[in-house]
């Protein structure tokens, strides 16, 4: 299968890329890792007239801590996160996800920015960034715009990015003392999308949970936070009863569709289980365990 015809553009600066996007409008798609876009083009599910390849833009690939945040360049490959000792040591939720996104070869090419900008509820980074309360930085003709992740996902495959904006950076608040996070995913096999997955980032003060954000993968048309599940543990002691209540709340508030990965009922129940497992792991990590 060969993609449809298109004009290829390879700008070498963010300014040139934005200028191309501004001129070409919605006839153009950004080509980053391409591991969602190229398969979609081969199936002719996407037939963009123009591709703007950002792989030749220098300075969009980095992972570092800066001003109380982990900042990730949008073009950073998933494998760079996977092999980052900074991520492994300080950002366990992100590290968990980094090992289960697609497969190792896809992670060599796929980018963090692309995983988010595609706004696919089946992708893993949307839930991870929702749980972290990340901010996304876009560059457009008018300059830079900072978008809180809670405002970023607006529809199925639809983000808050305008056609002439390029996602350039993701900023994750560095976790404070007593914080922990975890990502728990069930997939049929390596490389498949999640049947369901849960991302949890929380803070413990002694035995009390003083902050909690929970988000879900592939059980709603738009990447979602599990607000009701968060409410079950926030300000509470995360006992087994409270964790079970959070799992049940997530199962009730998600909105999965039956497909080849399972029935709606099955996906709700798996979501309950995964939320529980992720909370338990996050609490353990917040209290200094592995």
């Amino acid at each position: 299968m060969i993609p449809g015809e298109f004009e290829y553009h390879a700008p070498s600066t963010v300014e040139d890329a934005v200028s191309l996007l501004d001129t070409l409008g919605d006839e153009a798609k950004v080509l980053a890792g391409g591991h969602s876009l190229v398969p979609a083009m081969r199936f002719r599910l996407a037939q963009p007239r123009h591709l703007v390849d950002i792989n030749r833009i220098a300075g969009l690939s980095y992972v570092r801590e800066e001003d109380g945040h982990l900042v990730i360049g949008a073009l950073t490959r998933e494998s760079e996160l996977e092999h980052s000792s900074l991520v492994a040591g300080r950002y366990p939720l992100l590290a968990d996800a980094g090992r289960v996104i697609a497969d190792p070869l896809v992670r060599n090419r796929g980018t963090v920015g692309g995983n988010l900008a595609h706004a696919d509820p089946a992708n893993d980074h949307p839930a991870v960034m929702l749980a972290y309360g990340a901010t996304l930085v876009a560059r457009g003709p008018g300059g830079e715009r900072v978008i809180p992740v809670d405002d970023f996902f607006v529809g199925l495959f639809e983000s808050a990015l305008k056609p002439n904006e390029l996602l350039v950076e993701i900023r994750i608040p560095s976790p404070g003392a007593g914080s922990g996070g975890a990502y728990r995913k069930l997939e049929r096999k390596v490389g498949d999308y999640a049947i369901s997955a849960a991302a949890v980032q929380l803070t413990m003060d002694g035995s009390m949970c003083t902050a909690a954000r929970i988000a879900l993968t592939n059980v709603s048309p738009v990447p979602m936070r599990a607000n009701a599940a968060e409410a079950e543990i926030l300000g509470e002691e995360p006992t087994e009863d409270a964790i079970e209540a959070a799992g049940r709340a997530a199962a009730a508030e998600c909105d999965p569709s039956a497909d080849l990965r399972g029935s709606e009922e099955y996906k709700r129940d798996i979501t309950r289980v995964l939320v529980k497992r992720a909370i338990r792991a996050a609490v353990t990590r917040a209290q200094g365990g592995a």
Binding site: M1, A10, H35, V38, P39, D103, N108
Partner: peptide, 26 residues
């Protein structure tokens, strides 16, 4: 043909990639 199997794996600047999901021009 679906970026799943890895039979087309080659190294691009030393990195293993699925060559069915990269354009030659890249």
């Amino acid at each position: 043909d679906t970026t799943s199997c890895g039979a087309c794996t080659v190294h691009l600047d030393g990195v293993a990639v699925k060559s069915c999901t990269v354009f030659a021009v890249q």
